[in-house]
Nucleic acid binder design. Structure first.
Lengths: 229, 229
DNA sequence: TCAAAAGTGTTAGTAGTACACCCATGG
DNA sequence: CCATGGGTGTACTACTAACACTTTTGA
């Protein structure tokens, strides 16, 4: 056996799938790279771990310095280790996904990228590295997670209507959900709390505003999709 | 920004939670360490990634050389990155879990460990590093996975009775499941195939032997536990 | 013939699905 | 008063949960 310090180590990076929801569209944030490899191509934001950081620290640093975001929902996804995934050498990437409310942040390209843009998840450009794959794993995770865990609030404003929540679910799951059954299930689960206020200034009936119930017990609900059958 | 090669990298290791099922007991394989750190203490098997290996390769190498096992069910779990998790320095561990049938392998201590032993998951000794935590994540994953994915076959012989499968579920989930409802659900899902043969030589009625249906469509079943309520 | 485990159906309750009408608002 | 989306209830269906007797075998 080799001594501890004799092992060569791959580089360790994080890659981030940052989801945002806006105008009834689920989007993902991509960077246009300024440098090789994959210069001028779109990729997920990412970066190398520094020795004193946790993986979460690295993600938060990237979110903050490259994108100007902080205090967002962030979860580890999977570790991607294909030996050829990065042409510069052996890089192992711990994929994460974040859920953010785009209206809260002004995204900035920083010095690292030509451009930073939101892309509709249904119409992504070609991605560098294995980022298409990482994105697909993230989208799948988000879809399964939203069925049993109240994760949608991260994507909405603090106050929202049931219709807005309903549209978010339909958008993420790419399926129709019965409006009345959705409402009943969400309310029965005590998943959201009626604030007693209404959204004003719309041309139709003013819908009631709700907020997330942070005291929610885990596992108290499950949304079914038509594909469950 | 630093050039690519200037980043210092943590060491990268895998840790393995190897589950086995025998005598109506779910067990986990532990090594008694011969060297510091945690000399003479029990830990999960693990090892460092070598540059030409994938993480799965590393796991398979460890399973084969330390434990004499090959071709086992293996799945990535989570990446553990607490800066202080290893007293030798910064080591990031990609946790995996494996499901094996202990009757298929003769475990060997190899030269690395004082001892290798199966421990009932209900009565584990103190573990070195953060291995207790890794173990708990693995057990939880196994418990949720078995509810919707036919993973139990990895732990049983190729031919098994419904009662044996039922006992396996009760053991893993630590709950009672109605025998008749369990049988119906498993059979309705076409989860297993009756071989037409029976287990002979028992003192009571000879139960029918089944085998796993490898053509099983995903998502065709879901086991409920009492705690779902 | 007894003890022990295997095999089998039915009923009641719960949860899910499908579906239509009235209400509030702004123009 | 009209068009638009918000709010509400009920009947049907499907699944789940609870439960007991008969069969096979070895001793």
């Amino acid at each position: 056996m080799k001594a501890f310090h004799e092992y060569k180590n791959p580089s360790l990076a994080v890659d981030l799938v940052v989801f945002g929801y806006h105008n009834n569209t689920l989007s993902v944030l991509l960077l246009n790279r300024k440098d090789e490899p994959y210069k001028d191509q779109w990729t997920l934001p990412g970066g190398f771990l520094q020795m004193e950081e946790t993986l979460r620290d690295t993600c938060e640093r990237i979110l903050y310095t490259k994108l100007g975001m902080n205090k967002v929902f962030l979860e580890q996804l999977y570790t991607f280790d294909e030996p050829e995934r990065d042409p510069r050498g052996r890089v192992i990437a711990v994929g994460h996904y974040a859920l953010i409310n785009p209206s809260k942040f002004q995204i900035v390209a920083g010095t690292m990228a030509n451009d930073v843009k939101w892309f509709n998840v249904k119409h992504l450009p070609a991605l560098g590295f294995d980022h298409k794959h990482i994105f697909q794993v993230a989208l799948q995770r988000l879809r399964s997670k939203i069925l049993y865990y109240p994760v949608g609030f991260e994507l909405l404003d603090e106050l929202f209507t049931i219709t807005e929540l309903h549209e978010l679910y339909e958008c993420i799951l790419e399926t129709k959900l019965d409006r009345r059954n959705f409402r009943r299930k969400i309310l029965d689960a005590a998943y959201i709390i009626n604030t007693g206020t209404k959204r004003e200034g719309l041309k139709n009936r003013h819908p009631e505003l709700y907020r997330f119930n942070k005291q929610l017990k885990k596992n108290s609900f499950h949304i079914n999709t038509p594909e469950d059958e």
